[in-house]
Design a binder for these strands. Structure first.
Length: 507
RNA sequence: GCGCCUGUAGCUCAGCUGGUAGAGCAGCGGCCUUUUAAGCCGUUGGUCGUGGGUUCGAUUCCCACCGGGCGCACCA
């Protein structure tokens, strides 16, 4: 194995490894299988901690409990051992006394290393200092850990180390496990909420011949038997809309999408989207749904609807503020967004380069630079300038305005919804216009003729909603970086990667 | 992709303007039957991310590369 002399990969200290291998041999010599086996009827440590417990007494044994988990602390006091046992529900102290276990078990206990997995039966009680403790009567080896574990009391500080050893991060950084559990709860809450409203959850293709539904660069892959390039999807939209044509009136998907773009504290190349469509509804219907859906998540996680994020508190008490794009623009930029002269002046004042830019583009750049940071929210911003939203139905009485809203919380776009365009003629023109305008990067927008054909058969008018699940989880778990709500975010390979195989497809 | 910051023992960190590395914990050998980051005695452990340069001498200064972080760009 050649290492290209790079990266922060740490090799295990060979002496520490040897010490553990030696204990492994000693365990085997005692007739113990160091890799353990089935160990049934354990109680979660969190449950055990809630049991009533009295100080230990020789004449009156406390309740018997059985737990399994990882040893995170080990203190030997001669003929007495204190350990700390960890499982995903909590930690508890174990006490092993030489005269309370068999001689063989006492020997085994001497061979425990930090990080080993053990199972114990014992009596629940309290030590002289009042610490809730299981006094072990039977000790079962479940798995030897050969790698030295990090020192529990310091936790893990190195971000790269935490990401590359997420399993350790889960054990030694309480927030990591908490977030993983809360993420599950959020997604389950969303499913339950939508299922109760009669939405059907579906799964649409990840491999697509044309990656559509968003303006983003796709990943390219290859199918050998068909000998065609395929794209990883960048959105769920176009297939879900086909299902509207097919008669599913309330449909959603929670799934991974892939965008071949930069990485940042708010961006991972693969992330999870909820997209949802409701036939015969519109963007106002989606606003109500969004509010209810996110509130259900807040209620699932917090006793209050005012929750912390960073150094701020976010108040989710409904009803949430709703303001039009034009209103907010006037309020924070200080001029009417239709006034081309004033908008250009305001843009220049913000240091935006105005040369050769369309009016609508300037308006939106100003909105992003000036307005977004004010939107602590939650606030629904609705009625967008039509040029910004090619896939959206225009207002009947004002074709310059698109029926779209975005939900902002803490200046972050959390949800995006439209009254969906179901007019195949306009849709086709929009595709063509996008293609004409973006000839430089042909992969950004592709004419999806099959989708146009589906629209021609008649897609019901509908409201559609997209929510970035990762960002929702960030917000609801008070997490500042997307890497900490995705268990395994993308990182460069840690040792020198094999030379990338030519040919590249682009860039 | 560009800019700034960063990489010292298994973990967490020191190391002043250049003199070839140090602590705590973990490990190893002892002592201890109520510890709480247990304590006491002894002890092992590092090509200071990698390569090159300057220098009598580089963890320290310079350059390149590799990994990571933050910001910008692309985007959600």
């Amino acid at each position: 194995m050649t290492k290209t002399g790079s990266s922060a990969v740490t090799e295990t200290n060979p002496e520490l490894l040897q010490a553990r291998l030696e204990k492994l041999r000693q365990l085997e010599a005692l007739g113990i299988d160091p890799w353990g086996g089935r160990f049934d009827n354990t109680q979660p440590i969190g449950d055990i901690r809630r049991l009533p417990a009295e100080p230990f007494r020789e004449d009156q044994p406390g309740p018997l409990v059985r737990a399994a988990g990882r040893v995170l602390r080990y203190r030997s006091a001669g003929k007495l051992l204190f350990l700390e046992l960890w499982d995903q529900t909590g930690r508890i102290q174990l006490m092993i006394r030489v005269n309370k276990v068999s001689e063989r078990e006492w020997q085994i206990a001497q061979l425990i290393d930090l990080g080993d997995l053990i199972g114990v039966d014992g009596e629940l009680g309290k030590t002289k200092t009042g610490e809730l403790t299981i006094q072990v009567t039977r000790l079962t080896y479940l798995t030897k850990s050969l790698e030295p574990h990090p020192k529990d009391v310091f936790g893990l500080e190195d971000i790269e180390y935490r990401l590359r050893h997420r399993y350790l991060d889960m054990i030694y950084t309480a927030d990591t496990l908490r977030r993983a559990q809360q993420r599950v709860l959020i997604i389950r809450t969303i499913r339950n909420y939508l299922d109760r409203l009669g939405y059907m959850e579906v799964e649409t293709p990840t491999l697509q011949a044309i990656a559509g539904g968003a303006a983003a660069r796709p990943f390219i892959t290859h199918h050998n038997a068909l000998n065609i390039d395929l794209y990883l999807r960048i959105a769920l939209e176009l297939y879900l809309k086909r299902l509207l044509v097919g008669g599913l009136e309330k449909v959603y998907e929670i799934g991974r999408v892939f965008r071949n773009e930069g990485i940042s504290p708010r961006h991972n190349p693969e992330f999870t989207m909820l997209e949802l469509y409701h036939a015969y509804s519109d963007y106002h219907g989606m606003m109500d749904l969004t509010e209810g859906l996110i509130l259900a998540c807040v209620d699932a996680l917090y006793p209050s609807r005012i929750i912390p994020y960073g150094d701020k508190m976010i108040d989710f008490t409904p009803p949430w503020k709703r303001a039009s794009y034009a209103e907010l623009f006037r309020e924070y930029v200080g001029c009417d967004m239709l006034d081309e002269v004033k908008v250009a002046a305001a843009a220049r004042a913000e240091g935006i380069d105005t040369t050769g830019k369309e009016h609508a583009v300037l308006v939106h750049e100003l909105f992003e630079d000036v307005v977004e940071e004010k939107l602590i929210g939650p606030i629904f911003v609705y009625d967008y300038p039509a040029p910004l939203c090619p896939l959206t139905k225009r207002k009947r009485d004002n074709p310059a305005i698109a029926e779209r809203f975005e939900l902002y919380v803490h200046s972050m776009e959390l949800a995006n919804a439209y009254t969906e365009l179901n007019d195949p003629i306009t849709q086709e023109q929009t595709f063509s216009r996008q293609l004409a305008g973006l000839s430089e990067d042909e992969s950004m927008a592709r004419m999806d003729r099959d989708f146009i054909r589906a629209l021609r058969f008649g897609m019901p008018p509908a409201g559609g909603l997209g929510i970035g699940i990762d960002r929702l989880v960030m917000l609801l778990t008070n997490t500042q970086t997307i890497r900490d709500v995705i268990l395994f975010p993308l990182l460069r390979p840690e040792s020198g990667p094999p030379a990338p195989q030519k040919p590249h497809h682009e860039t």
